[in-house]
Structures are given as C-alpha cells and as structure tokens.
C-alpha cells in the first residue's frame, strides 16, 4: 500500500515500517501523519506514495486529527450516512508520527486521544532525534547521542539526559493494546499491528526506526541495526494486552550493547578514552531495564 519511489533516504527504517504496517492488514485504512520525514518524503508534489487516504495536519496533532476522523466515521455510521463500499470491512484508523511529533510536541494530543478512547492505532517511528530539520535532540534521543543540539565536544559528551519512556506513558492510559516493535523483527511487528487494529479502543506501538543520516550508520546495515537493537535488549520487544505484559522476544544470548552502539557514528565519541564510564552506564541501564521486564513478565 506504499508505492515505491518515495524520497526517504536509502536505508531509512521509517520506509520499511510504513510498508510493513500497511501489509499487516486487509482493513481499509485511513492514515493521519504528523509533520516529519515520512510526511515530507512520501508526498512530494505532485506525487504520493500512499495508496490509502492520508492526512497531514501539523507537527503536534496527528492524534487529534485522527480523533476527528474516527469520531465522524462512528457518528456517520450510526446515522446510516455512510455510502456503500465494495469492501464492507470497517474502516480502521492509524496515526503516524516520528519521535519529535510523538514524544515531544504531539504528546498532549496523543494523550488526549488515548484517554478519550478513540478506536485507532498510533504508531511512533522512533529514530531518536529530529532528523528532518537537521538532527536535533529529542526526548527520545538516547543518553550519549551526538546531535546538533546536544553536540559532543568539550562541554558535554552528547546528550546528558535519559530517553523518555513513552511506551510506559502510553500504557499508563490503560488502553487495550500497547507494544514495542522493530522492523528487524517484521513478523513480530506485523502481528502486533493486526492485533492492535482488532483491539476495541486505542492502541499504541512504538517502533525502532534506524536513521543512517542521523545515526551516522551505513545504509546497508539498517536491518542489522534494527535487529541488534532488539538482540542487545536496547529495544526490547514486548506487548501489553489488556494490562497483561508479555515479552515477545528473548534473545538466546544477550549481546553487549556496544555491538549496537559501535555501528553508529552518533555514539563514536563514547569509544574515545575517558568515556568508558558512559558505555558502562548505558550497558547498566539496559541491564536494569531488561531485568525489570523479566520480573514483570513473571508476575
């Protein structure tokens, strides 16, 4: 449902994500898209890469816009105002945003839509910075990442703050379905999308999106990184279905996080002498979080 020829960079994770997202379902889909790379690169005049109805509004309001569409659809359906369609399956709604449009400026409208209980799926493609405007840090940027507004230099060694746990924030709305995913584990991701669309009410999936431009990684390694993120437990895969937590992937051997970091130039400064403690810190945080998730599953 995503046409080839869009302008996303070679090796862009988001292109893979939107393709897998739309491959996951037979329902007719309406997409609302926050401002960002995907919005810009899939809709360069006079073309569109979207073979489904698609709305771009602002940076902060993909969830608010889809709320309106979904509420109108429900109301029109109730009143019998909808024209007959060949495909009689119900229409499903997906809002799509990057980490800037979701973790930061769009958090308010996301929270509002989740709380009001609109029947829609929000997918965040998280590449950990504002890549579209020139690689500025976001609240999704990992600790230590070099961005243009958290530059690694004399004063600081990249971003000094930890990443916001957006998935936990979404889960705190007690919605029917919340998950993390990675296009590197595409069967897992597509299954989660279908499940989320079946959920009665709001669903949220946070997807790791590799960005060769901002991560300073090799484009041909994008799928490798999308898998390594999961295999190092930097980006654990889980779902929370009606409150029930479940890990959907457990690595046989948990790889050290440096395997993931060393392939990305944005972490290059962490491998310089004197920054060993930062690598150790990142590993420690990953281990702690993974430990918490293992404990949580036992409950």
């Amino acid at each position: 449902m995503v046409a080839p020829g869009h302008r996303l960079c070679t090796g862009c994770g988001a292109g893979v994500i939107i393709r897998q997202m739309l491959m996951s379902t037979d329902y007719p889909i309406v997409v609302s898209n926050a401002t960002g790379c995907v919005e810009v690169c899939t809709s360069v005049y006079p073309y569109t890469a979207w073979r489904v109805p698609w709305i771009h509004n602002g940076f902060e309001n993909a969830a608010a816009t889809i709320s309106g569409v979904e509420a109108a659809y429900k109301s029109m359906k109730r009143r019998g105002d909808l024209p007959a369609r060949k495909n009689d399956k119900p229409i499903k709604f997906i809002a799509l945003g990057g980490d800037g449009g979701t973790y930061d400026i769009g958090l308010q409208s996301l929270s509002g839509a989740l709380e009001r209980g609109h029947d829609f799926l929000y997918i965040c493609y998280d590449n950990g910075a504002y890549m579209n405007t020139g690689i500025q840090r976001s609240s999704a940027s990992p600790f230590g990442a070099n961005t243009t507004t958290s530059p690694a230099g004399v004063m600081i060694q990249g971003k000094q703050e930890e990443r916001k746990d957006l998935t936990a924030i979404a889960a705190a709305h007690n919605i029917p379905y919340v998950a993390t995913a990675s296009p590197g584990y595409y069967m897992d991701f597509t299954r989660k999308v279908s499940k989320a669309l079946e959920a009665k009410g709001p669903a949220f999936i946070n997807v790791l999106s590799v960005c060769p431009l901002g991560w300073k990684s090799e484009p041909e390694e994008s799928q490798v990184l999308a898998r390594l993120g999961v295999e190092t437990c930097f980006w654990p895969l889980f779902e929370i279905e009606n409150g029930k937590f479940r890990l959907t992937f457990r690595p046989n051997v948990k790889k050290p996080v440096v395997e993931y970091l060393k392939r990305q130039g944005r972490f290059g400064h962490l491998f310089k002498a004197g920054n060993e403690h930062m690598l150790a810190h990142i590993q420690q945080r990953v281990d702690e979080e993974w430990g918490r998730l293992l404990e949580r599953e036992k409950k």
Partner: peptide, 25 residues
C-alpha cells in the same frame, strides 16, 4: 527545531555553554 531557523539553535547549543549561558531544547 523548525526549518529554516534551526541553525540558530544549533549555533546557540554550541556557543552558549562556552560563555556560561544556558541552551535548552
């Protein structure tokens, strides 16, 4: 961040800490 102004933020992020200033995104 917003195009076409983002470079102002990028330069401020680099330069302000050097003069004891504060940059917040």
């Amino acid at each position: 961040p917003i195009t076409p102004s983002s470079e102002i933020a990028a330069v401020m992020a680099e330069e302000l800490p050097k003069v004891g200033g504060v940059f917040i995104q």
